[in-house]
Simulated scan of single mutants.
Amino acid sequence: MSSVLGFRDPVADAIGLLRPRTVVGPSLLAAGEWALRFDPFLHVRIGGLVRGTCWLILEGHEPVLLREGDTFMLGNPPPYVLASSPGASPRPAGPVLAGAEDGFVRIGPESGEDLYLCVGHIAFDDRNAALLTDLLPSLVIVRVGDPHGGRLAQLIDLLATEVGVAAAGGPLVQNHLAQILLVHMLRAHAGRTHRPTGWLGALNEDGVGVALRAVHADMAHSWSLKELAEISHMSRSAFAQAFKSHVGTPPLEYLIQWRMSLARDALARDTLSISQLARATGYQSESAFSTAFRRVVGSSPAQFRNQSRQPPRPAANGS
């Protein structure tokens, strides 16, 4: 399937299906005592300190001091506060951010600015957002001294540079840098001792990770449990148990779910015929594919594609 739809591994598949929409900034320059309270936000926020320190106070967590070069990722975050100190009285962030000029919000006298915070908001296609957001904790922090920290700090610096200059192609560069930041944050999160659940954490498991990468590299192949166990150098029973333990679903059920996720995306964008899609997802016939699709999605491929083509209904006028 990778040769048809362009996907190669679980992370590439997920990012492709998520259709990320990135908004970078406004960046924050601050001096003195300050605190901003942010409302809950769907999907992901990423940020990093270019200069200075600040406190991140997330509902349900102990306050965290962020230092220059540190980066953070918030997954479907509850309300949170960014502040110069834990005791600072917060004000709503919305009106403050609305007053941004040239991509920056300034708090306090410009001559005394000792904080430079660069942030990005990443929203996903609602139909597939759970592929990633269900695997993320509400807060991930990567310190500048961590294995991935230096690289992330460099990316934050690059992003801050793009925000600070009005250069040709700036929004495009900012969008791509924010998505690169997301991937590196996912790598950092997946590589930690307390590994996440699901396919994200399983990528670092020797046997299961090999099978995951093989499946995503060739979704058109008719994978069997025996074949996946062999490339993982495990018995079928040991592989099936390890896979379900790390990923959360049995191997072949995982394969079907990913195939149907990719199929829904292709049908919604109308990029392949149903017969082409059947072959691309490893089915010998269109009828076999349609049966599997109906079982997972609840409608036939043709019905799903037709529904996706229909424009959304306008909202009813309220009185």
Score class of each variant (00 low, 15 high):
His121Ile: 13
His221Cys: 08
Ala167Cys: 11
His189Asp: 06
Phe243Leu: 06
Thr133Leu: 02
Gly169Trp: 11
Arg213Gly: 06
Ala188Pro: 00
Gly170Val: 01
Gly191Phe: 04
Leu158Arg: 07
Ala129Met: 06
Glu227Asp: 13
Gly201Phe: 03
His176Asp: 11
Leu117Pro: 00
Ala129Arg: 13
Leu131Ser: 02
Glu227Ser: 14
Asp146Ser: 15
Ala166Val: 14
Asn204Cys: 05
His216Gly: 06
His148Pro: 02
His194Arg: 15
Lys226Pro: 02
Glu227His: 08
Leu182Ser: 02
Met219Pro: 00
Ala166Cys: 10
Gln179Lys: 15
Asn204Tyr: 08
Tyr116Lys: 02
Asp125Gly: 04
Ser237Arg: 14
Ala229Phe: 12
His148Ile: 01
Ser222Ala: 14
Arg213Leu: 09
Ala202Thr: 06
Arg236Phe: 03
Gln179Ala: 05
Glu162Val: 12
Trp199Ile: 09
Val144Cys: 05
His194Ala: 15
Leu159Lys: 03
Arg127Gly: 01
Leu131Phe: 08
Ser222Tyr: 02
Asp157Leu: 10
Asn175Met: 05
Ser237Asn: 10
Val183His: 08
Arg195Val: 12
Gly198Glu: 04
Pro147Lys: 13
Trp199Gln: 07
Arg213Trp: 02
Asp218Val: 07
His233Gly: 06
Ala188Thr: 06
Glu230Trp: 12
Gly149Ile: 02
Ala129Ser: 15
Gly201Leu: 01
Leu186Cys: 03
His148Tyr: 13
Arg151His: 13
Phe239Pro: 06
Asp114Leu: 00
Lys226Phe: 05
Leu186Gly: 03
His194Val: 12
Leu203His: 00
Ala153Cys: 07
Met219Leu: 15
Gly170Glu: 10
Ala178Gly: 04
Val163His: 03
Asn175His: 13
Val144Gln: 05
Arg151Tyr: 10
Leu132Ile: 03
Leu115Phe: 02
His184Ile: 01
Asn175Ala: 13
Arg192Thr: 12
Lys226His: 13
Trp199Ala: 07
Gly120Asp: 04
Arg127Ser: 11
Ala242Gly: 04
Leu152Val: 05
Ala240Thr: 10
Leu172Asn: 08
Arg192Phe: 01
Glu162Gly: 01
Phe243Trp: 07
Leu132Pro: 02
Arg236Leu: 06
His148Glu: 12
Val142Asp: 08
Pro196Glu: 02
His148Ala: 15
Gly170Tyr: 05
Gly164Arg: 08
Ala229Glu: 05
Gly150Ile: 05
Leu152Ala: 09
Leu136Asn: 00
Glu227Val: 14
Gly149Cys: 08
Gln154Asp: 13
